[in-house]
């Protein structure tokens, strides 16, 4: 008996080993998606500051590039402004007043995993809520998934669970943009009707149906078109216009109350 006890005491580390391994594996596999989200948010609120610090260092190095990008965007916007006729201008103003755009900085980002997430430094405090669209000056980035007080986690296009409704610029037939891992610069547009005339090089933009994104935010260009297995729809390879590995500032499309009420009303009337 005594020798058995001795044995156990002497080899207690073996039990500790199994205990720790089981604990880690429970953490790794025992989490369902909801718990994983909870882990992400708690980790997020704790590590947000560190992420931001790191992003600050990064930004120091990329500030020139970021500046150029902003100037380019400004130029583009100015051109648009000058080209507009007066009546369009009024329309545009109305459109702008009904929705609000918040700028945020990306403080953490990944593109190489199968399920990528990114963290931005705006949260509930700044009026961010889950379901809002996120885009950069180059194009669509993703949709807000969870919000903390000061930070939010975005489900980017480069995540297996992401699905964003898109169309060919200037046409009305639409499909859903999805990503199935692998190349972080290419996504697939599914469920586009077979009769829609899509060709390589066409520009793909958001539909604006769900008011997650405004209409006509660039998504990418068509890199390949093929018929899906069932034959009724097209599978389109899209070269994403926004390089998700290289994000500085992003914009979040927030809904003001007006639009929200309108949307709810529509739902009731249906």
């Amino acid at each position: 008996m005594r020798s058995l006890l001795d044995f156990i005491v002497k080899h207690s580390y073996v039990f500790l080993f199994f205990l720790l391994e089981i604990l880690s594996l429970v953490l790794l596999f025992g989490f369902n998606d909801r718990q994983k989200e909870a882990f992400l948010t708690s980790a997020n609120s704790m590590s947000g500051t560190i992420y931001e610090w790191r992003a600050g260092v990064d930004q120091f190095f990329f500030i020139r590039k970021e500046n150029t990008r902003l100037v380019e965007e400004n130029t583009r916007l100015r051109e648009m402004l000058y080209e507009m006729t007066d009546s369009q201008y009024v329309d545009q103003e109305r459109a702008l007043s009904s929705s609000r755009v918040v700028a945020a900085r990306v403080v953490d980002n990944s593109i190489r995993k199968d399920d990528n997430y990114l963290t931005i430094n705006k949260g509930r405090r700044d009026g961010i809520a889950p379901g809002m669209g996120v885009y950069s000056s180059d194009g669509v980035v993703g949709v807000v998934m969870v919000t903390g007080k000061r930070y939010s986690i975005v489900l980017p296009v480069l995540n297996g669970n992401s699905s964003i409704s898109c169309k060919k610029k200037g046409s009305d037939s639409f499909g859903f943009l999805e990503w199935s891992g692998g190349d972080p610069y290419v996504a697939q547009l599914k469920d586009m009707p077979y009769h829609s005339a899509v060709e390589i090089g066409d520009t793909i933009v958001t539909t604006g149906f769900s008011s997650v994104f405004p209409e006509n935010v660039p998504v990418g260009t068509v890199a390949g078109v093929e018929r899906s297995k069932n034959g009724y729809t097209l599978r389109i390879k899209v070269n994403l216009s926004c390089d998700l590995s290289d994000l500085g500032w992003v914009y979040i499309h927030t809904l003001t109350e007006d639009e929200e009420i309108e949307e709810l009303n529509e739902q009731i009337l249906k």
Binding site: E21, S24, L25, L28, F31, K36, F39, L40, S47
Partner: peptide
Amino acid sequence: GLSIDLFSGTPGLNAASAT
């Protein structure tokens, strides 16, 4: 491992391999 996991959004992954 766990402290790395906490900041990488990978619960348990580094903890398991480090242990």
